[in-house]
Structures are given as structure tokens and as C-alpha cells.
Design a protein around this nucleic acid. Structure first.
Lengths: 200, 200
DNA sequence: CAAATTTCTGACGGCGTGTCAATAATTGAC
DNA sequence: GTCAATTATTGACACGCCGTCAGAAATTTG
């Protein structure tokens, strides 16, 4: 079942190639610069061939996002298994986030594009679900750590708040500060976001 | 100087009309649906006339954002003058944010579009500055309250952190939670963001 | 009232999308 | 080894949007 025919392998290889070509365009020049004509030209294939792999460029973006989010999930999984103490594991998640945004910056940018409604809405349910799953897994990893911390007695979740809601809070502040620093260049003068995250 | 000729008034009126036509398209159908041809058609003018007012659609979006952010600033100003105690005033800012996102939802959505790099970068410096100013004013209103709270003795900013950095933290968490709830529909099952904000 | 000026118009070139009939390549039955 | 059937690739095409600009229409001025 895992063995594919030569044909299938070739198709997969080219799908990957399309993504490899599309990624830097999307990340460095934005969604509008990513055109099927251009991808086709850079790969020296006809446009129609690209359309055999992806029905429209939104689907390419989501495919890229699946890759990126899977990388994030792996980072989270690694971080969660990093130590015994829940406190240390939580710190590791934090540094994983920082690592991801700074050293996997392209992937971080890809993730942003997927939040764009006009991109998301056009994509296939299948890939939408892949992304949702990955997101849910990331959350469950972190809320698992929270749960362990509660069991350990080193953390008490405020009354009337679930673990997931607490994680959501963390997520919101890291995500918010990343986007704000990325999109409000003038604010960098006010202070870096990372110390804020660290202080929390 | 404040008195304008009939001509100028008419031009301004039409500029406003363009914005009024463009806003619902942008908010409800997204940036791609906002086309100069369509705006022109809906207003029963020729495309060229629209281009006499705005050099491209990105500029329309920024003009809309200026309106929206000025509304936000007014809300903030009102909230900041709402009470004497800094704690109450801060609460008022929080409710102003909630009010804005929910009851001025169109404006909230407009604000998001402006964070899109491909929109922002194309716009005129003049309007970019208007928006930056407005943003800075909003921050200074809130950090003013923080300062008052510090003077009052009811709040101590953590060492090594400026007022603005603290405000940035608040901003990040409200902004982050709003975007996340807006763009991750599946997560609403996990819990509402507002209680999180309130708990902070 | 006609000339000068301002404003408006929509056809146009360029670019991008997504389709599809035609063409080329591959397969496998004989 | 041949050839019909299947599958993959191609690029011309119809359509839509952007931004421009020469000329038409309206308005102002002398």
C-alpha cells in the first residue's frame, strides 16, 4: 500500500517541485506575485500541467501551509518530550515558538497567508481539515503539558477556565505579538516582543 | 481656509461615496472582489473618474482604514475620560475594544486588511502616516492610563518594562484572540475569547 | 458667446486565471 | 514489433481586472 508506482512517484515528485518553486515566491513577494503562469515558466512546464496538480493557487498555498504546520507540530512534539518537569517542557514550547518564527521564518509567513479568508475559503475541505487537525494537535500537546502541571500541583488553572482556554490565552499573546511586530514596524522602537513573552 | 468651494465639496462628497460603496464590498467579499470597475459601475460613473480620486484600490482600503481607526481612537478617548479611577478607565477601554470588534465589526475587518503587506506597501506614505499616528494615539491613551495607575499606586509595572511594553502585551492578547477566533472557526468550541480578556 | 480650462469617459494594452481541444507520450494486448 | 487505447501535456482562448490616456463633455472665464 505504501509502495507507489513509478508514475505516482513522479507525480508526487513534481507536486513537491511545484511547492518548492511556489514557496519563495509566496513568502518573499506575496500572494499576488504567485501566479500559475510564473510557476509554470520557472519549472519549464505548461500552465495546464500545473493545473493537473492544483486546481488553483489557493490550493498551493494550503499545501504549503500543511507542510509548515507539520514542521511546527514536530517541533512541539519534540519540545514536549524534552524534559520531565512540566515547567521545563512549557519553556521548551516557548523556545520552539521563537525558533519557528525566527529560524523557520518562511514557514511562519506561509502560516499567515492561510488565515486570509479569501485564500482559506477557496481551498478544498480535505486540506482545510489537514490544517485544522494539525492545529488541534498542537493545542492538545500544549494543553497536555498544562494538564501535567496541574496534576503535578505546580499550576492551578483559574476557576471556570479549561486547560484549552488557558492555552488559547498563551496562543493569543504569542500570535498577537508576532503579528503586531511583523506588521507594525514603527512599534519595534517601543520594545521587543520576546521579553514580553518571556515575562509571561 | 476651512471653507471650501462648491467644487471641492462635491469632490469630497464623491470621495466619501466611493468609500461608502467600497466598504461593504471589501468587508463582505474581500479584497479581490473590490475592483475599480465594480465600484464605478455601482456608482454609475466611469472607471477613470474613480481613478481621479484614488490611484489604486489599495489607497481606497487605507482611506477606509483611516476612518475606522479614527472611530476606534474616539472610542478610546471617550473610554479614557469615562471615570476617575484608572482601574475603571482601563475596564472601559476593554469594553470599548469589545464594542468595536462586535458592533463596529465592519471597521474591525477593515483594520485587518490594512495589515496585509501587499496592501500596506502599495499605499501612499501620507495615508500610512495617518494610520500610524492614529495607532500611536491609541497606544498613548492606554499607556497614559497605565501611567496614572502607577502614579496612583494601584499598579506596578514589572521591572525592566516600560508602560508601552505593558500596553503592547495587552494589545497583543486582545488582538491575537480576536484574530484567532475570527480565523479559526473550529476553536470557538473550546471557549470564548472575551472571558480570557476579562480575566486578564 | 466662444475660447480656455477642467472634468469625465471608455477603449486599450498588459497581465492573470482557469478551460479544453488538440497533440504527444505511454501502455499493454496481440 | 505494431498499433489502438489510454493518459499526460500543451498553449491558444475567453474572460476579467488594472491603470492609462486621448478625446468628448461640461464648466468657467473673458
Amino acid at each position: 500500500m505504501v509502495v507507489l508506482t513509478r508514475k505516482q512517484r513522479e507525480i508526487e515528485r513534481r507536486t513537491a517541485e511545484i511547492l518548492a518553486v511556489a514557496k519563495p515566491i509566496l513568502v518573499r513577494e506575496g500572494f499576488h506575485a504567485l501566479s500559475m503562469d510564473r510557476v509554470a515558466a520557472e519549472m519549464e512546464y505548461a500552465k495546464g500541467t500545473i493545473y493537473n496538480h492544483f486546481p488553483h493557487k489557493e490550493e498551493i498555498v494550503l499545501a504549503l501551509a500543511v507542510q509548515s504546520m507539520e514542521l511546527r507540530r514536530k517541533l512541539f512534539e519534540f519540545s514536549a518530550s524534552f524534559a520531565k518537569k512540566s515547567r521545563r517542557r512549557m519553556m521548551a514550547i516557548g523556545t520552539a515558538c521563537e525558533f519557528y518564527t525566527h529560524h523557520c521564518h518562511d514557514d511562519f509567513v506561509v502560516e499567515q497567508w492561510v488565515r486570509n479568508g479569501s485564500v482559506w475559503d477557496k481551498a478544498s475541505h480535505q486540506r482545510q481539515n489537514l490544517i485544522r487537525q494539525c492545529e488541534a494537535q498542537c493545542i492538545s500537546i500544549v494543553s497536555g503539558i498544562v494538564q501535567d502541571a496541574v496534576d503535578e500541583g505546580s499550576l492551578t488553572v483559574p476557576p471556570g477556565m479549561t486547560n484549552e482556554e488557558l492555552v488559547f490565552g498563551f496562543w493569543a499573546i504569542t500570535f498577537g505579538s508576532q503579528i503586531l511586530t511583523a506588521s507594525s514596524p514603527s512599534l519595534s522602537a517601543l520594545g521587543i516582543c520576546d521579553p514580553t513573552g518571556a515575562l509571561r
